Amino acid sequence: MTDRLKPGDPAPEFTLPTDDGGTLSLTDLRGRKVILYAYPAAMTPGCTKQACDFRDSLASLQSAGYEVVGLSPDKPAKLAKFRDRDAITFPLVADEDKAVLTAYGAYGEKQMYGRTVTGVIRSTFVVDEEGRIEHAFYNVKATGHVAKLRRDLGLD
């Protein structure tokens, strides 16, 4: 099991390929608050619901000073299909070797249908302007998570 991040920890740095063929580094977003959410697989029902919830809340999150980035082990080409199919309007980054997911404690053993499996642990991290973890939420639900996050951040 990988270590879980706590508020005040430095957010692990990364530079990853994106859905649009570029790359995105956490340092590119320094000076802004970042909501980095880790999800298991693009184009699956739960992950689609969660991405669409973030998409639908993006304007209000951005007006409150937050940038949203989705993180999964999918290939950039699959992320591009996901973006196009569901009109995702924020960056999706590909962590194919799962090194970043592991660094964030979002890859490891989890319970699925009563069995212990190894995979992506659906998680959300709020990174402050200096690159430190402000909040780390693990084992979040795909449905209703964005609304709960908004409440936790004092936006609703």
Rank of each mutant, 00 (worst) to 15 (best):
D3K: 14
K6M: 14
D9H: 09
P10I: 01
P10S: 09
P10A: 07
A11P: 02
P12K: 08
P12C: 12
P12D: 05
E13H: 06
P17T: 13
T18V: 09
D19L: 09
D19F: 06
D19R: 03
D20A: 14
G22W: 03
T23W: 01
T23D: 09
L24R: 11
S25R: 12
S25N: 04
S25A: 05
L26A: 04
L26I: 10
T27R: 15
K33H: 05
I35L: 06
I35C: 15
P40T: 10
A41I: 09
A41P: 10
M43F: 12
M43Q: 09
C47V: 10
K49S: 10
K49Q: 08
Q50R: 08
Q50M: 11
C52V: 12
D53Y: 07
D53E: 08
R55D: 05
R55E: 09
S57D: 11
S57C: 12
S60A: 15
A64W: 15
A64L: 15
A64C: 14
Y66T: 03
Y66K: 00
V69F: 03
G70H: 01
G70M: 06
G70Y: 05
L71I: 15
K75W: 07
A80G: 06
K81M: 10
K81E: 14
K81P: 05
F82L: 02
D84N: 12
R85L: 02
D86I: 07
I88V: 10
T89S: 08
T89Q: 14
F90W: 05
F90M: 06
F90L: 01
V93L: 05
D95P: 11
E96N: 04
K98G: 03
A99D: 12
A99H: 01
V100W: 02
L101T: 02
L101H: 11
T102D: 01
A103C: 09
A103R: 03
K110H: 06
Q111D: 14
Y113A: 00
R115F: 02
T116A: 10
T116L: 05
V117R: 08
T118K: 15
T118R: 13
V120S: 06
V120E: 00
V120H: 13
V120A: 02
V126S: 03
V127M: 00
V127N: 01
E129M: 10
R132C: 09
I133P: 03
E134I: 14
F137L: 02
Y138V: 00
K141Y: 02
A142C: 00
H145T: 04
V146T: 00
L149N: 10
L149P: 07
R150V: 06
R151H: 10
R151L: 13
R151V: 15
L153E: 13
L153K: 08
L155H: 12
L155S: 08
D156S: 12
